[in-house]
Design a protein around this nucleic acid. Structure first.
Lengths: 218, 218
DNA sequence: ACTAGGTTTGGCAGTAACTGCCAAGGTGGG
DNA sequence: CCCACCTTGGCAGTTACTGCCAAACCTAGT
């Protein structure tokens, strides 16, 4: 939801096809203002994770550090682990927007590598860097991270379909969306070679061949 | 771990590269006998989910239905949601074994479609069928499902590398492993067309092109 | 300015998930 | 038979999470 609908005018809660990315965070009725507050709180909590690690942090501490009462914490985040969700979604949304807003004449393959390169490398370097370590040391957090990026596949399918000209629910678009997310995830895994994430990502697209990211007769 | 190591002689807890699939279920020291008991209990719980749905089932009820005391339940499953893990892993392990044990002269592409076809279609039809509905209605369970199948990517990378002749940690093997899992997952999503999962899976492999599943000079 | 309506907030209490601890039982080897 | 060891089950305690209600806070209308 929060990922794909940013540009579209708010569909008045029409019954969407709901492929899984919809009905995320059903808590928020007014939407936009809540979202910003949630992201702010999310950033605060992630910052705490980066400095203190994830072990031995109770909800009480997380809430306090985010400037929320414990009760309001649970109105903002459905579970303790969902604290990282807005933070991660913000990053994904940025990449999706990059793909969507890139010059139309550029080939998709080019757009994807450009859109992913900087965020991937930044995620590995310091700054966000420790966040990956957080995910590696905390299984429940990694689980929601996986879920969030997987749900983002649909958003990527949409912007890819927008460029390729097909339906967002076509097999090609859906698979392409899933594939770029998978490639990005692999690029963030610890590499035996010293390659940067953006290089690994490009290598994955090379291995996949060009067919998937080219327009098709359908 | 439990996925890839079934045929190999137990490596005496050597320090593996640990790409994420390792250190799963660190609870089990003796391993094999515990695994069988866990799978049995897992099947029982899944059976209960299929009949009763997942809402309003406490750990106490799950444990009782599996013939375990509540305390032993938590020695068998680290969390309530992990009950489905052995059940899912068993299915994945079956497919991995099919790929590993297929006739060596068969092309990988052929092997994959044969290995996945039956389980995928069976998962959609009745029997396991409702299990997908369970995952769709219960977010936490879907999260662990995602995690389990994602961890299985490494096992698929290993058997694929075994067929292709490269290293299991090569970019090609790792990506191929991730890709087949992704394709299988997409095949199990609700389809607008009435296509069977095995057909969708094949369609995905077609879209990806043959390059990924062919031996390479490296 | 004051009030009425609705919405957000915080505290309190209750439930359910999970963990540490220990005593009881079961098993195998001397 | 007994002793070491492992597994089991119960109990108590902690932590995540929810329902409920009263106080605070807009906002609009008069």
């Amino acid at each position: 939801m929060s990922l794909s609908q940013t540009t579209q005018a708010d569909p008045p809660d029409a019954a969407e096809p709901s492929l899984g990315l919809a009905d995320a965070l059903p808590i928020f009725p007014p939407r936009h203002e809540r979202d910003r507050q949630a992201l702010e709180a999310s950033r605060a909590v992630v910052g705490l994770y980066l400095r203190e690690g994830t072990a031995d942090l109770s909800v009480k501490q997380l809430a306090e550090h985010a400037g929320l009462s414990e009760r309001t914490f649970y109105r903002t985040f459905p579970t303790k682990e969902d604290t990282i969700r807005p933070y991660v979604e913000a990053g994904l949304h940025y990449v999706v927007a990059q793909v969507r807003d890139a010059a139309p004449q550029l080939p998709l393959r080019e757009v994807l590598t450009r859109a992913f390169a900087a965020p991937l490398d930044a995620a590995m370097a310091h700054g966000d860097g420790v966040f990956l370590a957080v995910l590696r040391q905390n299984e429940p957090l990694r689980a929601v991270w996986l879920k969030v990026i997987t749900d983002a596949e649909v958003a990527f399918a949409e912007v890819i379909a927008g460029r390729l000209g097909g339906s967002p629910s076509s097999a090609q678009a859906r698979l392409a969306g899933a594939t770029v997310v998978t490639a990005a995830r692999l690029a963030l895994e610890p590499q035996t070679s010293g390659a940067r994430p953006s290089e690994v990502f490009e290598g994955c697209l090379d291995l996949l061949g060009p067919a998937l990211f080219e327009p098709r007769p359908s």
